[in-house]
Design a binder for these strands. Structure first.
Lengths: 339, 339
DNA sequence: GTGAAAGCGCTAACAG
DNA sequence: CTGTTAGCGCTTTCAC
């Protein structure tokens, strides 16, 4: 039999209530009683039943987290940030992997609600129709979107300046004179792709250069994608002097293909990634990329979520973190470099 | 007010019990009643309260997972495997990050127990004293160790042949004639380090070569470690013709340092990693490494855990998956290569 | 400073 | 086929 408050109460002769109070450090209990009960609890190896406790408590001190892709280190870093803050403030995390699937995402959120989470954090897909928006509009607990947003609910998001980030990338390349820039963009259906695409467009506009859609490829975001895309471009004899990648993972495949095709980076082709994964500094050559504060993003998301949990009336406001272009060795040497 | 069974019961005129039965697809309920109740539940947006349900149910259909390091893709892959199997069989996952800290690990397990998980999976640290062993010996629910073990509880583990894996690495190198092999080993306090160290020793013994401890460095497992270690070795004018790394992450830093020191891989130095991370095939040169079935490891761990949950009497037996040396471009060309 | 009683939402046992 | 009752372990009144 598991040790419960009742066990301790019987063993010590106090009421269940008194035991409960002691174990929750409630005031107005005599020192001696406290001592007796605490030592008995210790002796019996009492483990509080959080489930039973949350029957009466409105709070479970649990949150849900939906990752879009467990095998992508970008999301892992965000989750690490969430977990760090959660642990600090005494929350536990239920997690699930949506695999970029809209239905699965909603399913996971429903399961979370069923577990009575106090709130949740999602890295959401965009949603093809209004279903997604409707779904989130009817959610009874606080929630935050991390690193992405959903049209109509942007205020729930913590973002990292996708548009500005990609604009700075293209601005750098265009100012340097590049005109044939291969753009290996991200998957449709997520806000980042959309925002970075428009950041790119802005850079072209600001530099009075016409952008050509035939240089844009939408990939899913795996290294093989980048590898294939470059092979294809080369086979089709496309001219390009720079490659901009939706993320560092794609860039990895790109570097691979370029090396195999004897194209030197950055001399023949400049390559820029996005995300600044831990690995990127160890690629050959070290990858120039947009440094996104992944860990911080998760940390902040959890921090904000808690504020909403504690004050359900609080207004939602989009939170913008900033990213910056980080020069390494995959871009030309006429720029200052940093590690 | 949240919709409960009672709400639906009142609205339809049936008893709470009947409503409960319908919503759990219990038999012996008339088709018409079922229809009425189901549509009412739908209409009111009923969300079952899993917390309340598990007050009476012995099962919560929740498991806990303690990762040793959230930012290491090796563990992420294992977790992805766990999650995949968990989702298939309708379990939810509570996760936490121990950061290789023994105390934190136990703390997380205690929290899990408090949440009444049906079982849990841990990537455990080794434990400096008997405390860890004692702790796990008194746990009232089934649990599995993934990818590592704890002395005295090895039967709870799903492993991937660390000893054999490292032995095959050193066997390859020694047979090829290497005598000065730098071994960048892993952190003390985990079983993998211990087992791989003895796999190395076995290879030396089998090849009648004396191993020299001065070639062994114990690192924590980050890329900077590998980078530093090689720099140090070179500065100390150590002679070496091969580097064996505890994991691919260390190997990344090693390749970086070697490139900077104008040492060609594999011509001047052969380099071998461990784990076969997704990234490793995209390194320059593509990394020869030991391919560990990470995803499968997690999947199997969850699968076995469920069996123990369903049959608490079942005997624990160490489960061994196998790894294999995967040749790529960071080792000599006189061996068959594969991608 | 402590105890008794009620009840959170649900499921199981027992009736009918 | 459906309803009544009890109770899971805990916290929250409300007493004394």
């Amino acid at each position: 039999m598991r040790t419960t408050l009742k066990t301790i109460a019987t063993a010590t002769g106090f009421s269940i209530n008194t035991v409960s109070r002691v174990l929750r450090n409630d005031t107005r209990i005599s020192a001696s009683t406290t001592r007796i009960i605490q030592s008995k609890a210790e002796e019996l190896g009492y483990i509080p039943d959080a489930i039973a406790s949350s029957m009466r408590n409105p709070r479970t001190r649990t949150i849900g987290v939906v990752s879009a892709d467990f095998s992508n280190p970008f999301f892992s870093e965000i989750i690490r940030g969430i977990e760090e803050r959660a642990q600090e403030i005494g929350y536990q995390m239920l997690v699930g992997n949506s695999e970029e699937n809209e239905e699965k995402e909603r399913h996971l959120v429903r399961l979370f609600l069923s577990r009575k989470v106090d709130g949740f954090i999602v890295m959401p897909v965009f949603g093809k129709d209004s279903k997604h928006l409707e779904f989130y509009s009817s959610i009874p607990v606080p929630f935050i979107f991390a690193g992405r947003y959903i049209d109509g609910l942007k205020s729930h998001s913590v973002l990292h300046g996708d548009e500005d980030g990609e604009e700075s990338v293209f601005d750098y390349l265009l100012k340097k004179g590049h005109r044939n820039i291969l753009y290996l963009s991200g998957p449709d259906g997520i806000s980042n792709t959309q925002d970075r695409d428009s950041g790119r467009q802005k850079a072209y506009d600001n530099n009075d250069v016409r952008s050509d859609q035939k240089y844009v490829f939408h990939l899913t975001g795996h290294p093989e994608d980048g590898y294939q895309a470059i092979n294809t471009a080369i086979n089709k004899s496309m001219e390009f002097s720079a490659v901009v990648c939706f993320n560092d993972i794609i860039a990895m495949g790109v570097l691979k293909s370029l090396a195999e095709n004897d194209l030197s980076v950055p001399n023949d082709v400049e390559v820029i990634g996005y995300d600044n994964l831990m690995f990127s500094q160890f690629m050959e050559p070290a990858l120039t990329t947009v440094d996104v504060p992944k860990h911080r993003l998760g940390y902040v998301a959890m921090d904000i979520l808690e504020k909403h949990i504690n004050d359900p009336e609080m207004k939602y406001e989009t939170n913008h973190l900033s990213s910056r272009l980080l020069f390494r060795d995959s871009t030309g040497s006429d720029k200052a470099k940093q590690r």
